[in-house]
Write a protein that binds this DNA or RNA. Structure first.
Lengths: 368, 368
DNA sequence: GCGCGTAGGTTACGCGCGTAAGTACTAGGG
DNA sequence: CCCTAGTACTTACGCGCGTAACCTACGCGC
C-alpha cells in the first residue's frame, strides 16, 4: 500500500480493532479481488459495463462488510456535480416549518443516497451562489422562488431548482395551499363573510401576497363576497380597532396568515371586549404547539412535514436516476390537515361541505 | 488547455459575456503568469515558502479579478479535512434559536473563510457520523453534547467538537445561562419564593434538567428557599391546578423553561381565576414574537443570536489558524437580555439589584 | 485457421487542490 | 573561479472517485 507522504490521513490504528480509518473504494475492490474500476461500476450500478452477477455480489458484499460510503468530495470532484441537494432557507420568520421539513428531508433523502445540506441565508447577505459554488449541488430546493441572479447562475451550470412555495405555476408539492383549506373549512361551518389577517413582516411579503390572493380566489370560487383585508403587527398594536371594524362590517370569520397573526387577532378580540368564536371565528396556519393554550384555543392548518419530505425525496430520487422528474402530481391533501379547536367553534356543520371529504383532512382536538 | 473528455464541466460559454464557468486556481495562476503551486501558496498564505511581495500581489489581484473561490471538494480531498463546520441540530422543539444562530453563523463564518453546514437530525436517526463522513468537517458544533459513540468516532478522526449548551463545564459561550438571569431579575423586583415551570418534552429533558439545576443554584446563591417545581404540558392540561397550588404555597413568581411553557402557565393563571402578575409573575425564555400579544404580555429572556454567532466565528477562526482555541472567556452578558413586560409587573425595583447593572441587560417594552 | 462479435473485465486519466522535493538564478566568501 | 547559501520559484505527486478506452479470452460461422 503506497502511503501518501502529503496527506497521512489513514490513521495508524495501532491496537484499535475498530475501523482503520474510513474505507475507500480501493479497499472494497481489494477485498473483492477486483480492480477499482470494477468496484466503482458495481457500486454505481452502471449497466453499460458488463459485469457478471457473481462479481457484482462479491463487490456489494465487500462494501457492506466494510461499511463503505463514497467520499462525497471525491465524487463531487470527479463528476462535477455531487449527490447534494442544497436546501435554501431565507432569513424570515417561518416558524418551525423549515426546520421540520429539513429534519425529515435529511432522514428521507439518506434512504435515497442523496445528501441534503441546509443553507440559511443571513440577515443581509443572500450567499446562495457562494454556497452552490462550494458544494456543487445537483439541485437547489428553496422555500420561495430564488432571485433572478441566482436562478440564472444556477441554470447556466445545469443545477436544477425546485421550490416549496413557488410564486407561479402549480408544479410542486404544496400546490393547493393552506389558505384555500382555511376558506373551505370556514365556509363549511357556515361562514359567508371572511376576513384575511395578513402579516406585515417585510420578508414574508411575497408569500403573504400569494396567500391573500388564494383567499380571494377561494372566496370567488365559492361565490362569497371578497374577503376583508387587514394587516396585523405581532406586537398587537391596532388589532383591537381592526377587529372591531371587521365585526361591524359583518365579517364573522378570519383566516390568518399564520398562527402568530391569528394569536394577535385573538388578542384584539379580547381587548375589544368581543367573543371568539361567537363574534369572530379565527383560524391560523402552522399548528404551533401552544395553540391549545390560547384564549380560546386556536384552530389551525397543520403541515405534514414528513409527507412533504417523502415527496421531495422521491423527486430527488427521480432526478438522481435521470428520470426527468415526472411531475409527480401531488395534491395537498397529503400535506395539510385541519386542527379544529374552540376558536372556530366546532359548531354547526353543513353535511355537503368539504368537511365530509375525510380524505382532505382529519379532525383532532388534540394533535398527535 | 487540455480538455477533459470525462467531465465536460467547463461550459462552452458561447456568447455569454459572463463567467466561463467557475475559475480554478489554474486560471488564477495563468492570469498571474506563475505556476499553479505558487498561486496556491499565495492563496493559502503559506509563509514557509518564499515568494516575493510582487508575485504575491499579482496572484491576489488575479484571484480578485476572476472572483476566485477554492473548490471545497478539491480542498477537502487534498487536505483530508475541509474548512467546513458541521452544525448539528437535534430533533427537538427549540423554537427559533437554532435557526437564528444558523443564519448568523453562516454569515459570520463566511467572513472567516469557513463554511457552516447545518445538519438536522431526523426524528429517529441520528446520522451525525454519516454526515461527518460525507463532509469531513474540521469541527462539529452541536446544540447539546453528542452521544458517546459519535463523540468517540469524531475524536478518533481528530475532528474537534464544541457545544452551545454543554452538559458540563463552562467552556463555551452560554455559560451563565438564562435561568440564572431569570432568577436574578425576579429577585431584583422583590420576589422571594420562586417556582420553576419545566417542559415535559422528552427530547428536551437534558437541557431542562440543567435549567432546573441552574434555578436551584441561583436561589441558593441568593439564600432563597428552594424553588417549587412543576412540569407543564403545552396543551394546558392540569396547568390550572398546578398554578393554584403554587400560589397557595406562597410562590409569587415563576421562571419558565421557555416562552411556550410560560404561556401555558399564563393560561393556567387565567383559568384559575387568578391575576398575573399580582398573584403570580411569569417570565419565559426565547422572546417569541407573539409575547406582546399574550394576556398579559409576557416577559422573557432574549438570546442575542448574532453575538453568539460572532463568538463562534471567532472560535472557528482560531481553529482554522491553528491557534489552540484560547478559551475566549465569554460571559453571557454579551448574549442575553431581559425583555420586560406586564407579566412581571414592571413595578417595584430594588436599587441594589441586578437591574442597576445596565451592562447585563437593556430594558425594552417593545423589542427592536 | 482466421476474422469477429461479445462478455467480463483492467489500465489510464483527470477533476482541483495542497505541498514535498527539485531547479534556476543570484550574492558573497574563499 | 568555484562552492556554498539563500531566494524565488516550478515540477511532480496523490487525495478518492468516475469513466473512456483498451485488453483478453471464448464461442461461432466461414
Amino acid at each position: 500500500m503506497p502511503t501518501n507522504p502529503v496527506n497521512p490521513r489513514r490513521v495508524a490504528d495501532a491496537g484499535g480493532a475498530g475501523g482503520a480509518g474510513v474505507p475507500t473504494s480501493a479497499d472494497v475492490a481489494r477485498r473483492a479481488n477486483v480492480s477499482r474500476a470494477t468496484a466503482s461500476y458495481v457500486l454505481n450500478g452502471v449497466t453499460s459495463q458488463k459485469i457478471s452477477e457473481k462479481t457484482r455480489n462479491a463487490v456489494r458484499l465487500a462494501a457492506a462488510e466494510l461499511g463503505y460510503r463514497p467520499n462525497l468530495a471525491a465524487q463531487s470532484l470527479a463528476t462535477g456535480a455531487s449527490k447534494i441537494v442544497l436546501f435554501v432557507i431565507p432569513y424570515v420568520h417561518l416558524g418551525e416549518l423549515a426546520t421540520l421539513i429539513s429534519s425529515h428531508l435529511t432522514a428521507r433523502t439518506a434512504e435515497q443516497g442523496m445528501t441534503v445540506i441546509v443553507h440559511f441565508e443571513g440577515p443581509a447577505s443572500r450567499a446562495v451562489i457562494d454556497a452552490a459554488r462550494d458544494l456543487r449541488p445537483r439541485l437547489v430546493l428553496s422555500m420561495f422562488s430564488l432571485d433572478d441572479e441566482t436562478a440564472t447562475w444556477l441554470r447556466e451550470r445545469d443545477i436544477m431548482m425546485t421550490t416549496i412555495f413557488p410564486d407561479t405555476g402549480l408544479a410542486t408539492a404544496v400546490n393547493e395551499p393552506p389558505e384555500w383549506l382555511q376558506v373551505e373549512y370556514l365556509v363549511g361551518i357556515g361562514h359567508r363573510q371572511i376576513g384575511y389577517a395578513d402579516t406585515c413582516e417585510p420578508g414574508l411579503a411575497m408569500l403573504a401576497q400569494m396567500r391573500h390572493r388564494g383567499v380571494v380566489d377561494a372566496c370567488r370560487a365559492r361565490s362569497l363576497p371578497a374577503p376583508a383585508y387587514e394587516q396585523f403587527s405581532l406586537d398587537g398594536a391596532g388589532a383591537e380597532h381592526k377587529v372591531r371594524s371587521w365585526v361591524a362590517g359583518g365579517v364573522s370569520a378570519v383566516a390568518a396568515y399564520n398562527d402568530e397573526v391569528a394569536i394577535t387577532v385573538l388578542a384584539g378580540i379580547r381587548r375589544a371586549g368581543l367573543r371568539c368564536p361567537e363574534d369572530l371565528a379565527v383560524i391560523g396556519v402552522d399548528e404551533m404547539a401552544i395553540n391549545g393554550s390560547m384564549e380560546p384555543p386556536l384552530s389551525s392548518i397543520e403541515f405534514d412535514t414528513d409527507a412533504i419530505a417523502v415527496h421531495y425525496a422521491e423527486v430527488f430520487a427521480d432526478i438522481l436516476n435521470g428520470r426527468e422528474t415526472p411531475r409527480r402530481e401531488a395534491s395537498s391533501s397529503r400535506f395539510l390537515r385541519v386542527v379544529e379547536r374552540e376558536s372556530t367553534g366546532m359548531l354547526r356543520r353543513h353535511p355537503d361541505s368539504i368537511l365530509s371529504r375525510s380524505d382532505w383532512f382529519q379532525f383532532s382536538k388534540e394533535p398527535h
